[in-house]
């Protein structure tokens, strides 16, 4: 798994690439632990290159989403692959983590 951060004027992007499973979820958890939420700066979580997610990855995403919500940061998961989207939906995550086709669509909201 790889985490890439990008900052544009309008929003911050973190792209999560590869596999988010029980072997790698800890890395993302460590990253979220260092993240400083800024309510003025929306966050795009880019899943375009996320090939696989298991319950270990979902657990980290859940805690991160709860933290973001609590600190008033606008955020969304963008460009989900179908397989990952299905897992999000089965888990009921799409009710509290907004999913968008693209970062542009999210920012335009």
């Amino acid at each position: 798994m790889k985490i890439i951060e990008r900052d544009s004027n309008d929003y911050l992007t973190i792209q999560i690439c590869g596999r988010l499973d029980s072997g790698t979820a800890g890395e993302l958890e460590a990253w979220t632990g260092t993240f400083i939420p800024n309510p003025a700066h929306p966050l795009v979580i880019d899943f375009a290159e996320l090939d696989y997610i298991s319950s270990a990855g979902l657990r980290v995403m859940f805690n991160f989403a709860r933290e973001l919500k609590g600190s008033g940061v606008r955020f969304a998961v963008c460009r989900c692959q179908d397989h990952v989207r299905e897992i999000f939906e089965i888990s009921g995550f799409d009710t509290f983590i907004p999913l968008y086709a693209s970062p542009e669509a999210f920012v335009a909201q």
Binding site: S54, N63, R66
Partner: peptide, 21 residues
Amino acid sequence: DLIQPMEERQAGGLGLHLVRH
């Protein structure tokens, strides 16, 4: 329980739910 609001939901317990699905 997947229909609980986020604030009341537990983070874990999804693995076996996915297996069953």
